[in-house]
Design a protein around this nucleic acid. Structure first.
Length: 139
DNA sequence: AAGGCTGTCAACCGCACGTCT
DNA sequence: AAGACGTGCGGTTGACAGCCT
């Protein structure tokens, strides 16, 4: 039986406060990214290491490009998804300043919907042969 | 104006994988 | 070789804002 990654008792959960963000930024600025497990204690944060890592990678890193995806980025995501599937970290690696979480969210909320409305199966990127109406016909 | 619905996004959870002992 | 440990990844959830009726 594997131990949990962190002590569930006594660690904060949910949205990060400005103070917590600042502590994490300050710590990483001085010591760099390193051992996530020991980082929270060293930085004075009541969070688990995973939570710190996620917060840093997805939100606090200075090279993150925030805001809407451009048409070129969207096209690239679609192409890469067709090639790689749900390998979000690989896809994000090809998009400078974008994170896997951001790409995954954008795919699920925008692109997937768009492809479905165009009659394209977002899983295999092929045109659906059977019109959706056929599924609602009993027998 | 208010209550319900829907979409978006930050964050958590559990598993997989690589490394170390 | 095998188990323990730390980290990374993908799926999923929950909060919240904006839209609709």
């Amino acid at each position: 039986m594997r131990k949990p990654c962190c002590d569930k008792e006594g660690t904060n959960k949910g949205a990060w406060s400005k103070q917590e963000d600042q502590k994490l930024i300050d710590y990483i600025r001085i010591h760099g990214e390193g051992c996530w497990r020991s980082l929270p204690k060293a930085a004075g944060l009541d969070r688990c290491g995973k939570s710190c890592r996620l917060r840093w990678i997805n939100y606090l890193r200075p090279d993150i490009k925030r805001g809407n995806f451009g048409q070129d980025e969207e096209d690239l995501i679609i192409k890469l998804h067709a090639l790689l599937g749900n390998r979000w970290s690989l896809i994000a690696g090809r998009l400078p300043g974008r994170t896997d979480n951001e790409v995954k969210n954008y795919w699920n909320s925008h692109i997937r919907r768009k492809l479905i409305s165009m009659g394209i199966d977002p899983n295999n990127h092929r045109l659906n042969q059977i019109p959706p109406i056929a599924f609602s016909q009993p027998n």
